[in-house]
Amino acid sequence: MISPDSDIHVRVRGLRFSFGSRVIYDGVDLDIARGKITAILGPSGTGKTTLLRLIGGQWRPKSGTIEVDGVNVNKLSRNQLFELRKRMSLLFQSGALLTDLTVFENVAFPLREHTDLPEAMIRDLVLMNLEAVGLRGARDLYPEQISGGMSRRVAMARAIALEPALIMFDEPFTGQDPISMGVLIRLVSSLNKAQGLTSIIVSHDVKEVLSISDYAYVISGGKVLDHGTPEAIRASRSEYAQQFLHGRPDGPVPFHYKSAKSYSDDLLEPAK
């Protein structure tokens, strides 16, 4: 057990999880420091999003424990879990904005659902949060009228509306042009600095993420391959980490998908 005011905000021990026969995690240990930005790096398809859903208690691990503020997420009842989730936010890759509500109403949504604040105060809070992400002017637009990068910024404004202690970003920079990527990077780091938010960023945009994070984990094949400060990761001698960081096409992760036969055998085999 860790006490709520410990330096460790989220502690994962011996995590195992699989989809059917496909093993996603095979014994993963993580410590997420309070008030810091922690990056989880890994190639596509390693189930990084799964990790965030496991921390949020949406899915249950096969074995292992996940503690948030010293509380085992998987031992909570539905109501206790909902209480816990009011103190954490998960930013989906798509933004997951409610398409039938305006930008303003989207940001107001958690406030309306969880508080009895008067309308005037909700309005002030929403405008403040929208101002923080630079989208106060877009408050009357609907989600389909704004770009993907803007959707993520609105989702950020919504995520901080209830002033959570923990915020998790799922691939926040994927598929963004350089300008909106720069905007998002600045926002993630300024949110962390201004509000002391514990931030977890799951990503494969190595350079950008390492530039703002305090600590990083490299995950592949269901295991933690390496972890340390960004400097340590960059200097890592792990072959895999080097391949991943520098984007080399071949290495421990082979260029060729596994095949039962050798190339020459396959070519020489008569066509059916």
């Binding site: 859903r53 949406q58 009011k86 409610l98 398409t99 958690p110």
Partner: peptide, 21 residues
């Protein structure tokens, strides 16, 4: 579509029960 675009999951993560809402 709400499910496919993570809106239902998003609600759950915001501690809002999509069945009720």
């Amino acid at each position: 579509l709400m499910k496919a675009t993570d809106q239902l999951s998003g609600m759950e993560m915001m501690a809002v029960d999509p069945i009720k809402r």
